[in-house]
């Protein structure tokens, strides 16, 4: 691990606090997210892990009354700073949601949507290429290549989620945030997504929020444990699950609460 240098740190958060109106949802979180790893956020419901995740691409901006203090940086650039453009930020930090949310358009249009609005590709053949590429990376190409013009909502739940991942990949992000991407899926579909995450690791920095500790153990290299808005412990996944330093982490992973 030591051979990986500091430049591999993709995102950092320093003393990050999040408030909903007067209520504090995130307390003083400091974390580094590495470009070549999968980072998992675990913790009981309402612990703030999803809230923190949404800060990383400023999706919290859409919620009225939400305020973020502290520094969150992407490649050393403050994402809440004046120079940062939220549209570009979200293109660089993609997001996959809890419930698959394909647009009510064709599979092709779902993928092509992002590259089009950002003007990444101008010609039809280039776009076809991006669609094919993204679907291949998301492991969906073989299943849908003959029906690209069918509605994205007609796919099965697991396929829809992989479509959403492909959609995020298509805008060539640097980080992919996944907010409990498997919680609405059956075990087989879940296994496919986990496989996919493993495939994507290294290409993109991946942050995954999950309820499922086995899943965190399976897919991630780093794990952060959140509780009551604070980040209790952060470290290598193997350490967190085998040798937690904090009592609360231990209680949680041994199933005392949560």
């Amino acid at each position: 691990m030591n051979k990986q240098d500091v430049s591999a740190v993709k995102m950092t958060a320093l003393n990050c606090n999040v408030y909903y109106n007067e209520k504090q949802a995130i307390k003083d979180v400091t974390i580094d997210i590495r470009a070549d790893e999968v980072t998992a956020f675990i913790g009981p419901s309402g612990c703030g892990k999803s809230t923190f995740l949404r800060c990383l691409n400023r999706m919290n901006d859409t919620i009225a009354g939400c305020r973020v203090t502290g520094d969150i940086k992407l490649d050393g650039e403050d994402i809440y700073g004046k120079a940062m453009d939220v549209v570009q930020l979200r293109a660089r930090v993609g997001m996959v949601f809890q419930k698959p949310n394909p647009f009510p358009k064709s599979i092709y249009e779902n993928i092509a949507y992002g590259p089009r609005i950002h003007g990444l590709i101008s010609n039809k053949t280039g776009l076809d290429e991006v669609v094919k590429n993204s679907l291949q990376k998301a492991g969906l190409w073989e299943e849908v290549k003959d029906r690209l013009n069918e509605s994205g909502t007609a796919l099965s739940g697991g396929q829809q989620q992989r479509l959403c991942i492909a959609r995020a990949i298509a805008v060539n992000p640097e980080v992919i945030l996944m907010d409990e991407p498997c919680s609405a899926l059956d075990p087989i579909a879940t296994a496919k997504i986990e496989e996919l995450i493993e495939e994507l690791r290294g290409r993109y920095a991946i942050v995954i929020v999950t309820h499922n500790m086995q899943q965190a153990a399976r897919v991630s290299q780093k794990t952060a444990f959140f509780h009551l808005g604070s980040m209790v412990e952060y470290g290598a996944t193997t350490d967190i699950f085998t040798n937690p330093r904090k009592e609360r982490t231990k209680d949680y992973i041994t199933g005392r609460y949560g």
Partner: peptide
Amino acid sequence: HQTQQVPT
């Protein structure tokens, strides 16, 4: 086994 994607 994967290399970092070239950013836009």
